[in-house]
């Protein structure tokens, strides 16, 4: 059992990391031949991170657009963030100071996360426009997240799975000495389900729309500086067809993250 999950665990993490990095590499290296910031946009490079942060931290454009979708999405992401933080003890041998504060939230982060997910699911069912655009994988991802949150909550708070054992297994994985005496895979069913679903999520992640988490930083309408009259942008392929001079990729990259 332990050996099986060690292999699956490493495989999933490897697929996740390689997959995500490959995508990020692709987003980072595909050129932008034209200036297409969605204006009004920052006119200096320093304004870009501010704009980006307001989107990533506050979901500003979504808020402007639709408060219900914003609420559903925001609640889910906040819940997810707290839940991920709450897993800190499985990642650090000695727990960093302050993190145990998150334990006082008990099971609420998981419930918040499920609440947001439930609302997102409901929106797909009751709003005809959302229904129209949804396909199987859209429903599946929400259900996958709900299942992960639910099994996690159950494992921790109802079945009281042995935390120490989970920790030792995880530490074994992280320190690349997985088959140690104390790091056997916990065999409670609920934990096995929870862990397997997380592995499934990791494997599916780089191939799915979850790549929005990285892709958002590469969106040219949001990460470009509004300075086309002052600063000339030419992509190498466009220079080839026109005999234009090439602005060095370095120069471009210095201007805004991910824009080269």
């Amino acid at each position: 059992m332990t050996a099986l999950f060690v292999v699956l665990g490493y495989a999933a993490i490897a697929i996740f990391l390689v997959g995500v990095l490959a995508k990020v590499w692709k987003y980072g290296t595909t050129p932008s031949p034209l200036k297409i910031p969605q204006t009004p946009a920052p006119v200096t490079a320093t304004g870009v991170p501010v704009r980006m942060l307001s989107e990533v931290v506050l979901f500003k454009s979504l808020f402007k657009s639709n408060r219900v979708i914003w609420l559903a999405g925001y609640v889910f992401h906040i819940g997810l963030l707290l839940v991920v933080i709450k897993h800190y003890r499985f990642l650090f041998a000695s727990v960093p100071a302050g993190l145990s504060y998150f334990d006082t939230f008990e099971m609420y982060p998981g419930i918040i996360m499920m609440g947001g997910l439930g609302l997102l699911f409901l929106l797909r069912l009751v709003v005809d426009r959302n229904m129209f655009i949804s396909v199987m994988t859209d429903y599946f991802l929400i259900l996958l997240f709900i299942s992960i949150a639910l099994t996690g909550t159950l494992a921790k708070h109802f079945y009281r799975v042995d935390i120490t054992q989970v920790k030792q297994f995880m530490m074994g994985l992280i320190s690349f000495s997985p088959m140690g005496e104390n790091s056997a895979f916990p065999t409670e069913t609920i934990f096995i389900i929870h862990f397997s679903l997380v592995l499934l999520l990791l494997v599916y992640f780089p191939f799915s729309k979850l790549m929005h988490s990285a892709g958002v930083f590469f969106s040219p309408t949001r990460n470009q500086v509004d300075n086309p009259r002052e600063k000339r942008l030419v992509a190498p392929w466009a220079a080839d067809i026109s005999g234009n001079t090439v602005v060095s990729v370095k120069e471009e990259a210095a201007e805004a993250p991910g824009q080269a």
Binding site: Y27, T30, H212, S219
Partner: peptide, 14 residues
């Protein structure tokens, strides 16, 4: 050739 197209193909969450 177009970062916009590549990124927008992947990241819509519907």
């Amino acid at each position: 050739k177009y970062k916009s197209l590549q990124v927008y193909m992947d990241i819509c969450v519907k």
